[in-house]
């Protein structure tokens, strides 16, 4: 029975932390009473990610990067395909597993923090909902996480409108970190920050990766950043993955013509601008 042998072989092999199989998302927009338009935002994407690795997702505007990030984070449900974390399939029945293992940092900290709840309450919500820590334990964990992202524990009593945008971004990162996730997804998180704050955040994230062993999935337009932090990358075009692999190799020897164009275009554009 060859299939059985293969089956055993795959299960005994070391599981990648995250495995994505043929993930796809089709939006259906009603354009009239009976007419509807289908938008294939993400089509047939497969990849895997190991512990303490960083995956960069790049591509033109509208190529489906955010959609892919949202699919992984569980904001939207995929039309096709599956996501496995440590070999365990994620679906509607185990949302708590997803909450604990994959967390998302949103693009804009101005809109991703509720202005009327204090930082402490914002950080308390995931703990309350996903752990059975006591109140004192949770407060301790919140203080510890705030220190981890370089803020004083006293910030727990602050409200988001009182914070600067760099501090807000740190709070957003703290919210993602507080459940000790295995993977953090950052959708264009860094592009809204100015250069010094951005490099601070990147250093913070890289340091956390070294100390805690978190994996990142980063969506960005910044090729310099991709080169600097990522181990693997996925190049997307119109919902399809046109190329994926090791970052260094792709930058030096892109196989698909379009991929080379995207890489050099965006890299040169960045060079010209800054």
């Amino acid at each position: 029975m060859p299939e059985k042998i293969i089956d055993i072989a795959t299960t005994t092999r070391v599981q990648p932390l995250l495995r994505v199989e043929k993930l796809g998302k089709t939006y259906i927009n009603p354009t009239g009473f009976f007419k509807r338009q289908e938008v294939i935002a993400v089509n047939d994407i497969s990849f895997s990610l190991n512990r303490a690795e960083t995956l960069a997702i790049i591509g033109e505007t509208g190529s489906g990067k955010s959609t892919l990030a949202r699919l992984l984070a569980g904001v939207i449900t995929p039309t096709t395909g599956n996501i496995y974390v440590d070999g365990c399939k994620l679906d509607a029945s185990n949302t708590d597993l997803r909450c604990r293992s994959i967390r998302m940092v949103f693009q804009d900290p101005e809109t991703s923090l509720n202005p009327r709840t204090s930082v402490g309450q914002i950080l308390d919500a995931p703990l309350q909902l996903n752990t059975d820590m006591s109140v004192a334990k949770r407060a301790e964990k919140i203080a510890e996480t705030l220190r981890l992202v370089g803020l004083l524990p006293e910030y727990a009593t602050f409200y988001p409108p009182m914070l600067s945008s760099g501090q807000k971004q740190r709070i957003a990162l703290a919210r993602a970190l507080i459940l000790n996730p295995k993977i953090i997804i950052a959708d264009d998180t860094l592009s809204t920050l100015d250069i010094s704050l951005r490099s601070q955040m990147i250093n913070l994230m890289l340091e956390l990766q070294k100390t805690i062993g978190i994996s990142y999935i980063v969506v960005t337009h910044n090729m310099g950043l991709v080169k600097h932090i990522s181990d693997k990358m996925i190049v997307m075009h119109q919902g399809e993955c046109i190329e994926q692999g090791c970052t260094e190799q792709l930058f030096s020897h892109p196989t698909a013509a379009l991929c080379g164009q995207i890489l050099s275009n965006q890299y040169n554009m960045k060079k010209q601008r800054g």
Binding site: G74, V75, T111, S112, L113, T117, Q121, L129
Partner: peptide, 26 residues
């Protein structure tokens, strides 16, 4: 539609909690 509500959903909040703590104060 706000992002902080999506964030609350990703924290695992149910509808009641989203309305009570996310929407109501606003």
């Amino acid at each position: 539609q706000k992002e902080y509500i999506i964030a609350l959903k990703l924290d695992g909040a149910n509808n009641y909690r989203i309305i009570r703590y996310g929407v109501f104060p606003n």
